[in-house]
Simulated assay, not measured.
Amino acid sequence: MTDITRVDVGDGTLFVEARRLGPDSELEGLGGRLPDLSAVTEALSSFAGQIGDALHRAAPDRASVEFGCQLGLDAGKLTALVVQGSAHASLRVTLEWTKTPH
């Protein structure tokens, strides 16, 4: 089941479609506060860092990684769900690295 949820993005709000991940995934218990994207962006940053580390070890001259990310609600918090990179993803993320000549 999905919900359209208002999300705090710092300078304003936006509406996102988020999938409920369990019975406790309601927005209750937030004390009127809106969920924010910080957990999602932190998860994506960590994911990108781990991919970047692996690519650094593999040492290609250039690399590109694309993946899809959908949003889920779990215990009233937004979470990132990594999915196939397709037109159906809520967010499509492309990461690129270029090897710097020494």
Rank of each mutant, 00 (worst) to 15 (best):
F15Q: 15
S25L: 04
V7K: 03
E96P: 05
R62M: 11
P23M: 11
V7P: 07
D61S: 14
G72E: 06
A75S: 15
T94F: 02
R92W: 04
A58V: 10
W97Q: 12
G68F: 06
E96M: 10
G76F: 06
A58G: 12
D53I: 13
L44F: 01
W97T: 08
L78S: 03
T79C: 14
A87T: 13
V40T: 00
T41K: 02
A18G: 00
F67W: 03
T13N: 11
A48N: 10
V65Q: 04
V40S: 00
D3A: 05
H88S: 14
G72H: 04
V93A: 00
A75W: 07
V83H: 01
S64N: 04
L73D: 11
S90D: 15
E42D: 14
Q84N: 13
A87Q: 12
P35T: 03
V9G: 00
A80E: 01
L71V: 02
A58T: 10
L21M: 12
L78T: 02
A59M: 10
L71P: 01
T41F: 13
R57F: 15
L34S: 06
R19F: 08
Q50R: 15
L78P: 05
T41G: 07
D11T: 14
G12A: 07
T13Y: 10
F67L: 05
G12K: 05
D24V: 09
I4H: 13
L14E: 13
K99D: 09
L44V: 05
G31F: 02
G49Y: 02
D8R: 02
S38I: 06
D11K: 11
V40W: 01
G22L: 06
P35H: 03
G29N: 03
G12F: 08
G76A: 06
D3Y: 08
Q70V: 09
G85M: 07
S86P: 08
V9R: 01
A48Y: 01
V7T: 07
L78E: 04
L91R: 05
P35M: 03
D61H: 12
V16W: 03
L27I: 01
L37Q: 07
L91A: 08
R57K: 12
V82K: 00
G12D: 05
H56G: 11
V16G: 03
G68L: 07
A54K: 05
G49L: 03
A87G: 12
L44I: 08
G85H: 13
E96W: 08
D53Y: 15
T98P: 04
L95T: 08
